[in-house]
Design a protein around this nucleic acid. Structure first.
Length: 429
RNA sequence: GGAGGCGUCGCCUAGUCCGGUCUAUGGCGCCGCACUGCUAAUGCGGUUUGGGUUCAUCCCCAUCGAGGGUUCAAAUCCCUCCGCCUCCGCCA
């Protein structure tokens, strides 16, 4: 901000967001520094006077009667000066605090700087990086594919009606084979994570406001966050939040980086503003479970770590034998914390479309600054970089498996990689 | 939920009763230097974090769990909150 404000303006422009806020921020920062200096100066004076008062009182106590009036007068003078200064200092302290709060408020409103390689534009302006696998030709196989809900209900794997009865729309039960599928996916995902050196974690699903704010979810995404008002806690929409906040307020030696985790938690999303979208089945739901990868690293290595996570996501989907494409998400669709984001979209036959199943973001120092996570590099400390990536979001992966691996007789082939986690079974029927 | 104890700059710790010489004591660890065949030991110096200022050094401000208050002045007094420990109760 101080050395290269145009870089922020450029980022705002690419995101399609307000540029003028940068000028407001610079002004607020300058005002904060001026107020701070004023306060510092007054406080210094105050301390210098205070330092004389103590000893003088001591002298006064020990002095003989002849000397007392002079000392008393001197003391009164100092006290009067100190009293006047105290008032001025208190006012300056308040002004300094207000100015800092104002600058902070603006600072929190500015999303992360976009990576200049991200395609510019809105939700539809992503670029496709690659296609992997080939969607099945059901016509050639001689049958019309059923959608995941029809298959899931026939297999007694998914129950959305009772989900709605008990909890409302966008809730569901995974029953029998559906639940087994989730447990198998969880174990497969965690084995993958462990093989790549990620530390398995089970995280809290309720977090304090600081964790939510620090990860950038109370900005434009705030309407999708559940809040437990009576305790001032938030339900996380992803374990990215508790994983990021895990090291908040900490200073990590650069030699101990990178730190890589795989967190398992339930995720809660209000899905406000998506009424009428994906209302059938379990593509878009209020509660689901997810294995999320999270990395803390030196900013110099952030892009390499990002590539790692994308590779691990692909590897997982490859193991599930799902066709997918990888996209480079456009600037307008990054969310406030990401500077670059790659989504993987799996082929969903009955929608004749690719749908998001994973998302990996490089958030650089954005979350680390807000959560005060630093690294010690020799003499200096500075913010580190954080990155996150989905390893396995249960409902959507289950949808992809049911639809892509369905057979004409209504059964579903279990991908070979998953069989060891399902007692060796080869199909659900 | 009840009662009691506690929270000090990496770790341990002094200071809190009774406000000012606290510029927060000492030990351990760590870093640098000196001495030294090497290591060890010893000696000397340094070692919280954030901010302001500066080419840089210096210097200044804040920071003793957090936030308020009293005061010329708060680690120290008052209030609220948070966390940890012990015991009791309840509980998957």
């Amino acid at each position: 901000m101080r050395t290269d404000p145009d870089r922020i303006r450029e980022s705002q422009r690419r995101r399609g967001e307000d540029e003028k806020i940068v000028d407001s921020l610079i002004a607020a920062d300058q005002a904060m520094r001026t107020a701070r200096q004023h306060f510092d100066e007054l406080r210094n004076q105050q301390k210098l006077i205070g330092k004389d008062i103590g000893p003088l009182q001591g002298q006064l106590k020990k002095a003989d009667d002849a000397a007392k009036p002079a000392l008393q007068a001197q003391l009164d003078g100092l006290m009067a000066k100190a009293q006047a200064l105290a008032e001025e200092t208190k006012a300056a302290e308040l002004a300094s605090g207000d100015a800092a709060a104002e600058a902070e408020l603006l600072w929190l409103q500015i999303p992360n700087l976009v990576n200049l390689d991200s395609p510019v534009g809105g939700e539809a302006d992503f670029t496709v990086i690659e296609h992997v696998g080939v969607p099945r030709d059901f016509a050639a196989e001689g049958f019309v594919p059923k959608d995941h809900l029809e298959i899931g209900e026939a297999l007694s794997a998914i129950d959305v009606e009772r989900g709605a009865k008990v909890s409302g729309s966008r809730f569901y039960y995974l029953t029998g084979p559906g639940a087994e599928l989730e447990f198998a996916l969880l174990n497969l995902a965690m084995d993958h994570a462990r093989q790549h050196g990620l530390i398995p974690m089970i995280t809290p699903a309720l977090v304090l406001p600081t964790a939510m704010e620090g990860t950038g979810f109370l900005g434009q995404a705030a309407e999708n966050v559940y809040r437990v008002e009576s305790d001032d806690l938030y339900l996380v929409g992803t374990s990215e939040v508790p994983l990021a906040a895990f090291h908040s307020e900490e200073i990590i030696d650069v030699a101990d980086l990178p730190k890589r985790y795989a967190g398992w938690s339930s995720c809660f999303r209000r899905e406000a503003g998506s009424y009428g979208k994906d209302t059938r089945g379990i593509i878009r739901v209020h509660q689901f479970d997810k294995v999320e990868m999270f990395v803390f690293c030196d900013p110099a290595n952030a892009e390499a770590e990002h590539a790692n996570m994308l590779a691990w996501e692909k590897e997982f989907l490859d193991a599930l034998e799902l066709p997918y494409r990888v996209i480079d998400v456009a600037t307008g669709d990054l969310g406030s914390s990401a500077s670059r984001k790659f989504d993987i979209e799996a082929w969903i036959p009955t929608q004749d479309a690719y749908r998001e199943v994973t998302s990996t973001s490089n958030t650089n120092e954005f979350q680390a600054r807000r959560l005060r996570i630093r690294m010690r590099d020799g003499e200096t400390t500075k913010p580190l970089a954080t990155l996150n990536g989905t390893l396995c979001a249960m409902p959507r992966v289950i949808v992809a498996i049911l639809e892509n691996h369905q057979q004409a007789d209504g059964s579903v082939m279990i991908p070979a990689a998953l069989r060891p986690y399902m007692q060796g079974r080869t199909q659900l029927s």
